[in-house]
C-alpha cells in the first residue's frame, strides 16, 4: 500500500515507503503502539529476505515514545537485523524559521533576539540560541542543541526528531518541562532554579541536569 504523493504526517496504516531520505517506516498515531509492534513483527517476518539487515527511518507523526516502547521497537527491528537511522524525517522538514526577529547566524543555527514570551514558539532544524529568557508558556523546538542566554522557564525540546546527543544549556534552568529526543522530564515539584548555568542531556535512558 502506498501513501498519496502529498503524504501527510498521519499515516492510517503501518507502511514502508521509499522517501528521498531513505526507507521510512510510518507508524500511525491511532491505536496503541503495541498493536503496531505486533503487526510490524508479522510484516517483517513475511518479507524477511527483503528487509534483512538495513537501516530505516521511523515516522511517528505526533506520537511520543516511552523508553519502553522504543526498546520494544528496537528489539523487533533487531530480530531482523535492522537499525533505526533517525526519527520523524518528514516532521523535520517542517522546521522553518518564521518570525522576522530571527536571523540565522550560520547554517543550522537560529538566533532569537530577545525573550520568547508566553504563547510564542520557535522552531528550527538545527540549533537555537536565545538572547534573552524563555518564559513560562513559551516553547522552543530544535532538532539540535538549545542554548538560552538567560532564564529558561518554559518548555524546551532539543534533538526533536531523535537526536539523543542533543543538549539544553541555560544560564538559569527552571523549566516547566524539558524534552530531549523522545524523552520528557519535568522539574520536581517545588524545585527552585539553582544559580548559575546548567546543562541537560541524556544519560542512559534519562534526562539529567548538571552544573556547567
Amino acid at each position: 500500500m502506498l501513501l498519496p504523493a502529498t503524504s501527510s504526517l498521519r499515516a492510517e496504516e503501518l507502511v514502508f515507503k521509499g522517501l528521498k531520505q531513505g526507507l521510512t517506516l510510518f507508524i500511525p498515531e491511532k491505536e496503541s503502539f503495541g498493536h503496531w509492534l505486533t503487526l510490524l513483527d508479522q510484516r517483517l517476518n513475511a518479507a524477511k529476505d527483503f528487509f534483512q539487515g538495513g537501516t530505516i527511518l521511523v515516522e511517528l507523526g505526533e506520537r511520543k515514545l516511552t523508553p519502553g516502547e522504543l526498546a520494544g521497537l528496537r528489539k523487533i527491528l533487531g530480530k531482523y537485523r535492522m537499525r533505526i537511522k533517525d526519527f520523524n524525517p518528514i516532521a523535520k522538514k517542517r522546521f522553518v524559521p518564521r518570525s522576522k526577529e530571527q536571523s540565522p547566524i550560520s547554517t543550522g543555527v537560529l538566533l532569537v533576539k530577545g525573550t520568547v514570551r508566553s504563547g510564542q514558539r520557535m522552531e528550527n532544524e538545527g540549533d537555537i540560541v536565545v538572547k534573552g529568557d524563555l518564559n513560562p508558556g513559551g516553547e522552543i523546538v530544535a532538532t539540535g542543541d538549545i542554548i538560552v542566554l538567560g532564564a529558561l522557564r518554559g518548555v524546551a525540546h532539543a534533538g526533536a526528531g531523535g537526536n539523543m546527543q542533543a543538549e539544553i544549556v541555560a544560564f538559569s534552568l527552571s523549566p516547566v518541562q524539558l524534552r530531549i529526543a523522545h524523552l520528557i522530564s519535568r522539574a520536581p515539584e517545588g524545585r527552585k532554579g539553582r544559580q548559575g548555568p546548567e546543562v541537560a542531556y541524556i544519560k542512559g535512558e534519562k534526562i539529567v541536569v548538571e552544573r556547567l
Binding site: 514570551r117 508566553s118 513560562p136
Partner: peptide, 10 residues
C-alpha cells in the same frame, strides 16, 4: 503575570 507576558509578545 502569565497573561501579561503573552500580551507583551502580542
Amino acid at each position: 503575570v502569565r497573561d501579561a507576558d503573552r500580551i507583551i509578545g502580542l
